[in-house]
């Protein structure tokens, strides 16, 4: 069953929509410690573009663009990065925030109370947000690609 996908208008629009969607997903991930959001919603936002590609390009066309093995590797790398960041503070405890309140990299001291928000604060929280964002994006994309590529195979 050859699957050509939808018309050229839909393909072009889905290519154009890659940039705002990925930028918005990265914004949600990077500001996870300042605004509502974080690694999970940001990864889910970035995974919507994969769903759009699957619908627009069809089963065979999207197989050339999206590689399952790369996504599988990214999933493992995200989880390993998260575990490594958790283990990096093992000198105090597991999951100790060893970067917070040091005054240098990601260690801006924040007093209690409302403030406009400083991007380089939060210790290891932004880094963990990035790791979890990579993992969720890769896992959701891989799940969608696998489930989509099996559907319609009535011959097997």
């Amino acid at each position: 069953m050859s699957d050509e996908g939808m018309s050229v208008i839909v393909k072009t629009v889905s290519c154009v929509l890659v940039v705002p969607t990925v930028v918005f997903g990265l914004y949600v991930i990077m500001h996870g410690h300042l605004t509502p959001g974080g690694g999970f919603p940001g990864g889910a936002v970035m995974a919507t573009i994969v769903a759009l590609f699957l619908v627009a390009y069809g089963k065979d066309g999207s197989r050339k663009i999206l590689k399952k093995d790369c996504l599988s590797a990214a999933e493992s790398i995200g989880l390993l990065l998260f575990a490594a960041l958790a283990f990096a503070g093992i000198s105090v405890t597991f999951f100790s925030n060893f970067l917070a309140n040091t005054g240098n990299w990601f260690g801006t001291v924040i007093p209690f109370g409302p403030n406009p928000g400083y991007l380089v604060s939060g210790g290891v929280l932004p880094l963990m947000n990035i790791a979890v964002g990579i993992e969720v994006f890769a896992a959701l994309s891989a799940i969608m690609i696998l489930m989509f590529s099996y559907s319609g195979d009535d011959s097997k």
């Binding site: 300042l34 605004t35 509502p36 974080g38 999970f40 109370g113 409302p114 403030n115 406009p116």
Partner: peptide
């Protein structure tokens, strides 16, 4: 969330964090 917050009376954060966990596990 303290970014430009108008007040400091806030709802409980721990149930919200557990709900976020529960949503992702439900999705999987």
């Amino acid at each position: 969330i303290f970014t430009n917050a108008p007040q400091t009376a806030m709802v409980l954060p721990v149930p919200q964090a557990l709900t976020l966990t529960s949503i992702v596990i439900g999705l999987a």
